[in-house]
């Protein structure tokens, strides 16, 4: 069985994995990183989105072996209840989550969106989040949250 090394939320792991094991199952079932959920089996919903070497991927469509040597950040590594990432805080302030199932993926996708478009328009946000489905919110407050997160992250960059 292939042996891989990965860093997840700052912790290094060495694991023997079946070649067919999905990254999301490595995270959830081997490493106990259950903050990243699974919403579909066709790479449509985006619930499983994580950062892999700084770029978002849908972890249900990456094999664990493909992540060998990579640095992964999940929603759990982004912030904690006591000290949330500005985007997590913005989701809270704008009531951009209801059941919260889509939320980890949505927050990850939102942060990724701002890398290319630090001050996105509503249209850019809507297009940018097209790969992440939410059944609860109707997206209005998610769009507001991403704008708010963008402002706060922009300010954080300026003031640092």
């Amino acid at each position: 069985m292939p042996r891989i090394t990965v860093t997840v939320d700052g912790v290094g792991y060495e694991e023997e994995v079946e070649p067919r094991l999905l990254l999301v199952h490595l995270l959830r079932e081997r490493l106990g990183k259950t903050g990243t959920p699974v919403g579909c089996d066709t790479s449509n919903c985006g619930a499983c989105t994580v950062m892999l070497d700084g770029k978002t991927v849908k972890s249900c469509s990456v094999l664990a072996v493909q992540a060998d040597g990579c640095d992964i950040v999940t929603i759990e590594g982004l912030g904690s209840p006591g000290s949330m990432h500005p985007m997590q805080r913005a989701f809270h302030e704008e009531h951009a989550l209801q059941c919260g199932y889509c939320t980890p993926g949505m927050v990850m996708a939102a942060i990724d969106l701002l890398r290319d478009t630090p001050d996105p328009s509503e249209e850019a946000i809507r297009e940018g989040l097209e790969g992440n489905l939410c059944r609860c919110t109707g997206y209005c407050n998610i769009v507001r949250a991403v704008r708010r997160g963008a402002q706060e992250m922009g300010q954080a960059v300026k003031s640092s």
Binding site: G35, T74, S80, M84, Q88, F91, H92, G100, T103
Partner: peptide, 12 residues
Amino acid sequence: EDARLLTGHTRW
């Protein structure tokens, strides 16, 4: 409810 759900401290 939010802080837990937003930081992956979930109990699905």
